[in-house]
Design a protein around this nucleic acid. Structure first.
Lengths: 216, 216
DNA sequence: AAGAATACTACATACTCATGCACTATTTGT
DNA sequence: ACAAATAGTGCATGAGTATGTAGTATTCTT
């Protein structure tokens, strides 16, 4: 994933003091370089050179102008190989799920422990995922049985139903879903029947449309 | 969540050397006590006293007798307030999902860095989630839109191709499309073959995703 | 303690879809 | 005028999907 000798990271952050703190910490390392730092998404795109690329982008959520969460899609389109870490003070699981559904690779809550941040940059650069503890718990909680969680379980659908609906809408085959969840193909059928009945759908396509409409 | 002055942790692990390593590390801390350590689920239940409780349980997956993943339900039933961390050498995302669907609070890959493990125990005790970096990435990846690789432009597709692609992505059947365009179903097939080839798709779903991505 | 609901597994059937091969009519380039 | 691409039709096969019916083990209700 690395294109140069360094891990290149960019940062979009309107708190200039905090940005400076991060840049100083990054510059103190030997393996990571901060090649771009801007206070807004608009400024970021403006300053990004035609073929410029990044390994990692630290993206604040609360920004003047376009928010980080909204800019994420645009950023991912321009920099498909850049791992984006959402970086915010907010421990908000709606934002957390939204970020991942839009392609983020990490969600870190801002803190002043720069060593921890640097460690997470290395983790990301090595193909790992970066999540702050509390957010990790929220993420895990999403899979827990009968726990209402952020990507709203549509009324009357349980954790597993919702999970299967999600995979279904991503286009996976029954066989693949069965293997992932370690149940039989007939087991998958069982859930899909249930989901279709609940949604009033009669095909993968209808179900997908309904799911997407209800979950953005 | 803590019931005593200490964080109490149990461990079920058949690798005695590894268990010893963990116990030693835990005993070296001031805040955590290892109150139970057994080499199998059966032994664990046998040695568990009537009202004994735990804050955290480190649960190996590969065990003689009942596997950790299967025992998890039984354990959660007996110890509903205990946070269970699956603890294994296997970086396997089927197991990962299964563990969380069954109520685990963490999934850590075994390593010899005991400081890291202790840190994770504290995280769990403070209501956080513990996941090893690679597993975190797998978990995050579950939410990612799975983007098929595709050409950057819809070039090379004629008016009729595009029209059919559009109808295809709206979910219409070949029969319906054939009737609408007044050609045979095989005619529709002919175009769809062409479209798939051009897009590098192999199913309606892939084609739809590519189409949507390229036309917004 | 009996019955109902839940969470599957299993088998069956018909339809849809992806793809390969063969054939033809029309258009287009040289 | 001839080759070759384009735009289909036709048939075949296997995989994937939707839906019905039935059975079992476990959990929840009363």
């Amino acid at each position: 994933m690395q294109k140069s000798d360094y891990i290149t990271v960019g940062i979009i952050e309107d708190d200039v003091a905090y940005m400076k703190q991060v840049r100083t910490a990054v510059d103190a390392t030997t393996a990571i370089r901060c090649t771009i730092g801007q206070p807004s998404i608009e400024d970021f795109f403006e300053s990004l050179k035609p073929y410029q690329d990044l390994d990692i982008l630290l993206l604040d959520i609360h920004l003047p102008g376009e928010s980080g969460i909204n800019g994420l899609l645009r950023i991912k389109k321009r920099l498909p190989n850049t791992a984006v870490i959402m970086h915010t003070v907010e421990e908000n699981d709606t934002l957390l799920f939204k970020a991942f559904l839009r392609g983020a690779e990490g969600y870190l809550v801002k803190e002043n422990d720069m060593d921890e941040l640097i460690k997470n940059l290395h983790i990301i650069a090595n193909g790992g995922g970066a999540i702050s503890p509390i957010m990790a718990r929220a993420l895990i909680g999403y899979f827990h049985p009968n726990t209402p969680s952020a990507p709203k379980k549509l009324e009357g659908l349980g954790t597993k139903d919702t999970q299967i609906l999600h995979m279904l809408s991503e286009g996976w085959t029954y066989k693949y879903i069965a293997k992932k969840l370690d149940i039989t193909v007939d087991g998958v059928r069982y859930y899909i029947r249930k989901i279709y009945k609940r949604l009033g759908a009669h095909s993968r396509h209808e179900a997908t449309k309904i799911y997407r409409r209800l979950s953005d």
